[in-house]
Design a protein around this nucleic acid. Structure first.
Length: 737
DNA sequence: GACGCAACTTAGAATGCTATAT
DNA sequence: ATATAGCATTCTAAGTTGCGTC
């Protein structure tokens, strides 16, 4: 069934071939401009945000990159507050460039202390550590009973020993797969054994006193209908349940789960009263919050048991953690953005739906009692342990290994090696697509412009999507005319392309980019005589693009450019921003700034935290209070000065000094808080984690830590260190991406 | 070369946990 | 002792890519 795809290439009107003269740019400013950009560093064409744009921030009239990329999501007709906010943001950013350390210092300091303690005392349970700390204090005060002291000392020692032992054990157990020879192509493992996935518990019907009403009348729902009703009731506080599409999809699927009788009765969602179900759920959540320590421990231990049993597998004689060993429980589908399928029932997965993959000679996992697997296969050409087909999109879901596993790590390493290979040939590739901008073939020109965007702006490839199956999002190749606005001149720049579209996860990409004359002219040509809904690149798709790329360099695809430009940007920014003479907090600041530059380049955003406005307001009241305090301190100082002048008492002079100090301290604190506020505002919508985890070659960071003498755990937490163990182990300080 | 699907990476939101502030 | 903030972890949706098929 060939469903209509948005922007059918065949339908799009064929743009006429341009005459050569029309596109002959000649050695104009355009090419000079481009060359300038190309010349960034090591002959690298620095990506737009960090290269050209960032530089231009210094020019007063130029607006900062951050502000250009307005980050609001386009949802529910929420209008992105473009300009007014931008101004604020720009000032904010400039300040941060100088002062960001305020908040960073404080949080970092805290962590440092904590971590030092961890190091010294061993990886003890927090309660233990707390007690120890307390007791040390008591000891210092000389208030403690001697027996207690002794125990404390002993405890500390024991804990320390335990930690060291544990660390050693961990190190010893770590599979140093990166020192082993790789398997032949296509072979992912030789032996794979596991227990199969963990299944969520079956539905437990509600107690009788929790009732559902239809049209004011109590209805005793069948278990199947009740389960689905509860999914909806649990979400009542969520915005989803107010959306028309969500409600309709839910209601339609819910009715499918009803008995005939129920279906006849329940015809209108608006007449459904889920109040008691909703309240029960809320109470449960509350109850969970206020349980005792003991109960918490019991739950924790039960969870640990599950992890112990199902959370690991044996891969080629090494115990490896599984990333997602739990079968996804049934629920209402929560698509991102305006997803046409939001609210549909995501059905319960039974063992009968699940395919198991393991080695022949291993112990085959046992299906839950009374059930059987859909299939057991032994395919060592794939990495998954189990899979099932999900009912919303009909796509396959997999159970795979954790990021710290060999299978994932090796692939990750490979990814960065491919990106590094791109580094050595990126110059010629750029030259190549510059040439292609003048091609007689429309398809070639389109490919060249698309590549230019992918390289310069780190856009994703942009596959075609089936209309009506997913939210309407695009990437580079699937850009439509309505997503671009061409400006011959804009804000002092020539040939500016204004991008405004929803990308992956319905994250808005908004950017105004000065491009070369050739690119600009080509775009005009591509968009000529087209409607807003037509594809800009009607002769291009990701397959064609990637085919071309792989002919330029083995393994090269569109997404390699993202990895490459992200990593290169990090390295360059680190070199530019960090300084050995800085203190640790300042070094951390430069690292985070470099990281942030990449996040901006890759357009990694998050929704502002729920409590954002509140915590912002709290901070503001603190600032106001401090400000008042400062005024008071200043008047006090004046008074003191006056008195000191009119009297010859030398004591008064010291009073003046003291008051002066107080004013200074107050000013300092005020500044720090203001910077913190600015920083928080700035980071409101920027997510650093994704780039750190997926785009930045960890060896750059490891080498930086070594060179800067910053402990690695300042930039990578435990799981990140585990994921990047290969890089931590092999990277020397002279590593260059 | 278009298409569909399998397999895998990348993504932000939701939730959980812990240290710190009150 | 409790509330809160902020980071870590979990969850699963949403991308990219390659391959087989016609």
């Amino acid at each position: 069934m060939a469903k209509a795809k948005r922007g059918q290439k065949a339908k799009a009107k064929k743009p006429r071939q341009s005459s050569p003269s029309e596109n002959e740019d000649g050695p104009t400013d355009a090419s000079k401009r481009f060359n300038m950009a190309v010349k960034q560093e090591d002959g690298d064409f620095a990506p737009q945000q960090m290269g050209r744009k960032r530089k231009r921030q210094d020019v007063p009239s130029a607006s900062a990159m951050v502000q250009k990329k307005t980050t609001l999501k386009k949802e529910d007709g929420e209008v992105s507050s473009g300009t007014p906010r931008k101004r604020v943001k720009k000032e904010a950013e400039e300040k941060i460039e100088e002062e960001e350390e305020g908040p960073t210092v404080s949080t970092k300091r805290k962590r440092t202390k904590k971590e030092i303690e961890e190091k010294e005392e061993g990886n003890t349970v927090s309660t233990k550590r707390k007690r120890t700390k307390k007791e040390i204090e008591e000891k210092e005060e000389g208030n403690t009973v001697s027996t207690k002291q002794k125990r404390t000392k002993k405890e500390i020692e024991e804990a320390r020993a335990l930690k060291i032992k544990k660390k050693e054990e961990e190190e010893q157990q770590r599979w140093r797969w990166w020192e082993e020879e790789k398997y032949e192509y296509g072979v992912k493992w030789k032996v794979l054994e596991h227990k199969g996935p963990w299944f969520p518990p079956e539905y437990q019907p509600l107690p009788k006193d929790v009732r559902f009403y239809y049209d004011g009348q109590e209805v005793n729902l069948s278990p199947a209908a009740e389960e689905v009703a509860l999914f909806f009731a649990q979400m009542l506080d969520h915005e989803y349940t107010t959306k028309e599409v969500f409600r309709n999809n839910f209601f339609k699927d819910w009715r499918k789960e009803m008995t005939h009788k129920e279906r006849v009765l329940i015809q209108d969602l608006n007449k459904c009263d889920f109040g008691e179900l909703h309240n029960m759920h809320k109470q449960k959540v509350e109850a969970r919050k206020s349980i005792t320590k003991e109960e918490k421990l019991v739950i924790k231990e039960a969870n640990q048991k599950i992890v112990e049993e199902y959370g690991f597998c044996l891969l080629d004689h090494h115990r490896e953690r599984i990333g997602n060993f739990k079968i996804e429980p049934p629920s209402l589908f929560r698509g991102r953005g305006e997803h046409p399928k939001q609210g549909q029932l995501k059905k319960r997965i039974w063992p009968e739906d699940v395919i198991i993959n393991c080695s022949k000679e291993s112990r085959i996992p046992e299906p839950p009692k009374g059930h059987h697997w859909k299939e057991v296969r032994h395919d060592n050409g794939v990495t998954w342990l189990a899979s099932w087909t999900e009912n919303i999109q009909g796509s396959v879901k997999y159970i795979m290994l954790n990021a710290n596993s060999k299978l994932k790590g090796e692939k990750d390493w490979e990814k960065y090696e491919v990106a590094r290979r791109l580094k050595s040939c990126v110059a010629s590739i750029r030259q190549h697509y510059q040439e292609d901008l003048k091609s007689k073939q429309m398809a070639t020109r389109q490919r060249a412009v698309a590549l230019y965007f992918i390289d310069k702006l780190a856009l994703r490839a942009g596959n075609e999507k089936e209309e009506g199956e997913t939210a309407d999002t695009v990437g580079c190749c699937s850009l439509r005319v309505e997503h671009l606005t061409l400006h011959d001149h804009l804000e002092g720049d020539d040939w500016v392309v204004e991008f405004d579209f929803l990308g992956k996860d319905c994250i808005r990409y908004y950017n105004k980019v000065p491009v070369t004359k050739k690119v600009f002219k080509n775009l005009k040509l591509f968009m000529e005589n087209k409607q807003g809904g037509d594809d800009v690149f009607d002769r291009l798709n990701t397959g064609l693009l990637n085919k071309h790329l792989s002919s330029l360099m083995p393994g090269l695809t569109a997404k390699v450019f993202r990895t490459y430009n992200a990593s290169v940007t990090l390295q360059q920014q680190l070199r530019e921003l960090s300084n050995m003479t800085n203190n640790q907090a300042e070094k951390m600041l430069s690292y985070n700034r470099a990281n942030r530059a990449v996040a901006i380049l890759c357009n990694h955003q998050r929704a502002p935290p729920k409590s954002f406005d509140q915590s912002m307001a709290n901070l503001q009241t603190k600032i106001d209070a401090r400000r008042e305090q400062l005024v008071l301190a200043k008047t006090n100082l004046k008074e003191a000065k006056k008195e000191a002048k009119s009297s010859s008492d030398p004591k008064l002079q010291t009073v003046v000094e003291r008051k002066k100090k107080a004013v200074e301290r107050c000013e300092e604190q005020l500044l720090r808080m203001e910077v913190q506020a600015t920083d928080r505002e700035e980071n409101k919508q920027i997510a650093l984690g994704t780039s750190k985890l997926n785009y930045l070659d960890p060896r750059i960071s490891v080498a930086w830590c070594k060179n800067m003498e910053v402990p690695l755990d300042k930039i990578y937490n435990k799981s990140q260190r585990d994921k990047f163990a290969w890089a931590v182990d092999m990277t020397e300080r002279d590593f260059q991406f």
